[in-house]
Amino acid sequence: MTSTPATSTDSTSTDGTSVAVLVGSLRADSVNRRVAERLRDTAPDGVRLEIVEGLDLLPFYNEDLDVPGRTPEAAVALRERVGAADRVLAVTPEYNGTMPAVLNNALDWLSRPYGAGALVGTPFGVVGVTPTPYGGKWSHDDAARSARVAGAVVVEDVTVSQSSIDVDVLEDIATQERLAGALRTLVGFAGEPTAA
């Protein structure tokens, strides 16, 4: 299975705003993937979400593999897709009190080359749900911190964590409105990029 690199375009001026979505769960029917798909399918006019596939194909980051001309194809495709996007949104559960390894690994690949990675200067937000009383807050905090270190501009107001284990997030109108609001905040962000 190979990934086709995205074409780089200035989508803010011609096609609206493009958002690359990183899903932190590899399970085909995960709730967070379904949240990402719902956001994609109900995005406002002028907003285009692309769920970045192939995170499972990324080897664990190893500088020995990250050599010009020999960087793994999945990593090149990831960098091209994220680099071509106007915004990046992580939609992730929480595993053992932090973000899943697949998301952490993707952020590692996106952080290189240091100071010039695909996330540098890009507005970044993180949302997601986890059926625990904490709702994924630690995972979201860790993902935001890693993205900031990688040079992203973390939009602090883009945050939705499931607050109750009794809520069906896919059917709960209030939760869906909060998720849609978080996406609107990310898309509408016009802050100045800060140095990594």
Rank of each mutant, 00 (worst) to 15 (best):
G151C: 05
V21Y: 04
T159E: 09
R184E: 14
R184A: 15
T2W: 12
V160R: 02
G181C: 08
S139F: 05
G115P: 11
R145G: 04
T9K: 14
A144N: 00
P59R: 04
E80F: 04
S163K: 15
A180Y: 06
A36S: 05
K137E: 12
F124C: 04
A6C: 09
V187G: 07
R27K: 14
D56T: 05
V126W: 01
T185F: 06
A28K: 13
D166W: 11
V120F: 08
P100W: 01
S3V: 13
E50V: 15
V82I: 06
G54H: 00
S18F: 06
D66Q: 06
M99A: 12
L26W: 06
L49I: 03
N96C: 12
D66Y: 05
V120Y: 07
R70Y: 12
A195F: 09
D142Q: 14
Y134D: 15
A147Y: 01
G69K: 07
A174R: 14
P123L: 03
G16Q: 03
L186W: 07
V88W: 04
L22G: 05
G151A: 06
V126S: 00
N104S: 11
E80V: 07
V91M: 10
R34I: 06
G97N: 09
P131W: 13
P113K: 08
A43G: 08
P100F: 06
G121L: 01
A20E: 10
A152D: 05
P100C: 04
G181R: 10
D45I: 07
G136A: 08
E171A: 14
G83I: 08
Y134G: 10
G128R: 12
V67L: 12
Y134H: 15
A118L: 02
L49T: 02
Y95A: 04
N62P: 03
S18K: 09
A20K: 10
D172Y: 09
N104E: 09
L58D: 01
E192A: 15
A195L: 13
G128A: 14
R40L: 09
G135T: 11
A75H: 01
G191Y: 05
L107C: 03
A84K: 09
V82L: 02
V160H: 03
L49K: 00
T92L: 15
T194H: 13
R148P: 01
T98I: 05
